[in-house]
Amino acid sequence: MKTFICSLIFLVFFFGGYAQELESILEQESQETSFNVAETFKGTRIANGHSIETRKKGILDFLITHRFGTLNSGAYELWGLDEANIRLALEYALTDDLTFALGRSSYEKTYDGYIKYRLFHQKEGDKPFPVGITLFGSAAIRTLKDFDPDNEPSFSDKLSYASQILIARRFSQNFSLQIMPTYIHFNQVPKTADPNGMFALGLGARIKLSKRMAINGEYYYNFNQFESFETFNSLSVGVEFETGGHVFQLVFTNSRPMIEKGFIAETTGDFFDGDIHFGFNISRSFQVKKSSRGK
């Protein structure tokens, strides 16, 4: 019995001292560790454009974006509800920071694909980093047959491209801000006077109102617009809801297209003249492969 008690006392002191030492080491490491700032934006979209957010590894996102006609179209068009423009897309997170996607828009019967890579995370802790940075690149092909059959454009002529650097900071739990330097390139333009390349700068923000509700805003200034027809800068405001497995956004925008080359370069509506399209973005996520993030 004495041997057992002595052994028990030894074990208590030995493992007790070891546990205290281990706790001290873990506490010291936690003080020296940086951590990523999560949920700068709740979804992968602010309104029309992308946020810096990427999905966790193995997540497949089914995204539906929809825009009706303009609110100033009147009662005969039921204030735009008789007209429908839709985009369907599948977005897959190959890693926590890398996403591939394919989509199809009813606007100009356009097919598009993109790659999105999370380059830097905003960090807090021992080694903070002030912003998150994500790189975005997309290609789109216009398949609408609105041309003379004897003068069909080539496959290359139908292509356009978009490149963006998304830079964002979550200033608090309730406010995030993002800037988006953007370059758009068209292989073929309507008239020779029109630029093939366009530079734009976007600004987006999110204000959180409650645990599951926020207001988003987005604006793109195009520095060199088309010359052959009148275009306007894209302006969007919306309300965002998180409901279980998906994010639902109600959007009011002067842009009919729902991909970068469209809403940045080809917006023909004046927001302040009532050319406002009501619409929504809704995404549903499916866990295809187990993620390592968040463990």
Rank of each mutant, 00 (worst) to 15 (best):
E230A: 08
G58F: 04
A168I: 02
N85R: 07
G279L: 13
K208I: 11
Q173W: 06
F129M: 12
L98H: 10
E218V: 13
L88T: 00
L94V: 15
G274F: 06
A84S: 15
G245K: 13
N196R: 06
T40V: 12
T267F: 06
F147H: 15
L102M: 09
Y18F: 14
S156L: 15
F286W: 04
W79S: 12
Q287M: 08
Y18D: 07
K261L: 00
E21H: 12
F136H: 14
S285M: 08
E29Q: 10
K57S: 05
G113L: 04
Y18T: 08
I167A: 07
S73H: 03
I133F: 07
F62R: 00
F147V: 12
G16W: 09
S285D: 15
D96N: 01
T182P: 08
D61M: 00
G69T: 14
I9L: 15
T33Q: 14
S172V: 11
R284M: 09
T33F: 15
F14M: 09
R212Y: 14
K109G: 03
A47Y: 05
K158E: 06
T192C: 01
G202H: 10
R169Q: 08
E29K: 11
Y92G: 00
Y111K: 00
F280M: 02
V247F: 09
I46Y: 12
I64A: 00
Y92V: 00
S255P: 12
I207M: 06
S285R: 04
